[in-house]
Amino acid sequence: MLKDITLGQYVPGDSTLHRLDPRVKILLMIAYIVAVFLVKRIEVFPIVIIFTVAVTLLSRVRLSYLAKALKPMKLLLPLMFLMNLFFIKTGELIFKWWIIEVYKDGLINAVFIVLRLATLVAGTSLLTLTTTPIALTDGIEKLLSPLKIIKFPAHELAMMMTIALRFIPTLVEEADKIMKAQLARGADFESGNVIKRAKAMIPILIPLFVNSFRRADELAMAMESRCYHGGEGRTKMRVYSFKTIDLIAVIVMALLIAAVVLLNKYMPAVW
């Protein structure tokens, strides 16, 4: 059933990572990205890898989920690797066969770029894997709320995200039903060239749009009826507080960044 698709990719659990304040988690993810980009030398990478693996273990999220997150990269990663491997021609030549030449800098760069991409994707996926969509939107709203002074619509943005998340499964299901209704009328979505196929989508898209507008209209009315009047004076059912565990997490992240910076500078060269 199409409606069984999971949203985001949240994996329910009660690990240390799950219990972190979403605001802290979002900030830590940004810090993590910074840490990955701060790594200047390949010798320093093991510390980021060890950190990423340790955090994954701490989250108790099965490794297969991380593998799933990396799946869209299965073409990009080898491509990046090969491009760096063959097109950087500095350093000493370490391999030569027919017209293929591999230089030392090329190899190092290739490994470096793959490691950087993989750790980035794996590390940032941990945020969505351990945070419910609703906590995520709450976190974003809270983090952006100082920007309200410059009229940035933080609450509206978060509300839009919530509603989008709420209605994606509904719309997917509806699209499925519409497609079936048109298939039953002999619609053909599979044959013909690009233009013909694009045209064949019209009988699906129009009902989907018309229904969505009506939905939006009804939802707006239902929200108003339930006293919705924007973000002003609104309280939250769920409140987040900065706990000891959040403090520890921040310290650990600070240590990682410090380690990366220091090792960049002082670690003896291996190659």
Binding site: T162, I163, L165, R166, R214, R215, E218, A222
Partner: peptide, 11 residues
Amino acid sequence: FQNPDNQIVTT
């Protein structure tokens, strides 16, 4: 309202 889907706001 009539349509249960169109009055539930959150996930």
